[in-house]
Amino acid sequence: ETEYTFDDKREADRAAKEAQNNGLRVHVTKDGNRWKVRID
């Protein structure tokens, strides 16, 4: 399990989409004014 934090939602969405394309499970959550992408 890996977690990334992004300031920009577009960057978070791009990272999530890339991980999904690689067959990974992805969870995107909002943390204040930042975005967390957790990859299982």
Rank of each mutant, 00 (worst) to 15 (best):
Q20A: 12
D13G: 05
K9S: 05
R14L: 12
T5N: 07
V26M: 02
D13V: 14
N21K: 14
K30M: 08
N21I: 10
E3S: 07
F6Q: 02
E11N: 07
D40E: 15
T2V: 14
D31V: 12
N21L: 12
R10G: 14
V37P: 03
D40L: 15
R14I: 10
G32S: 01
R10L: 13
T2L: 14
A19K: 03
V37H: 00
N33S: 07
N22T: 07
K30R: 11
K17I: 12
Y4E: 06
D31S: 08
G23L: 02
V28I: 12
K9M: 07
N22E: 10
D8G: 04
R25V: 13
L24Y: 11
K9P: 11
A16N: 01
D40I: 15
A19N: 03
R38F: 10
D7M: 09
D7H: 08
D8N: 13
K30E: 06
D40Y: 10
E18S: 09
N22Y: 00
R10N: 14
A16G: 03
N33K: 05
E18L: 10
Q20H: 11
Y4C: 14
V28F: 01
G23Q: 03
V37D: 03
E11D: 14
G23S: 02
W35I: 05
A19H: 09
K9C: 12
D13A: 08
V26Y: 02
G23H: 06
N33E: 10
R25G: 07
W35T: 04
R14H: 10
H27I: 14
A16L: 05
T29M: 10
T5D: 07
L24I: 05
D31M: 07
T5S: 09
R25M: 10
H27V: 14
D40F: 12
N33V: 03
G23P: 00
A12M: 02
F6C: 05
K30P: 07
Y4F: 13
N33Y: 03
R34D: 06
R25D: 08
T2D: 10
R34W: 06
G23D: 03
V37K: 00
Y4Q: 09
Y4I: 10
A16M: 08
N21D: 13
T5M: 13
V26A: 14
N22W: 00
Q20T: 11
K9Y: 14
T2M: 14
V37T: 02
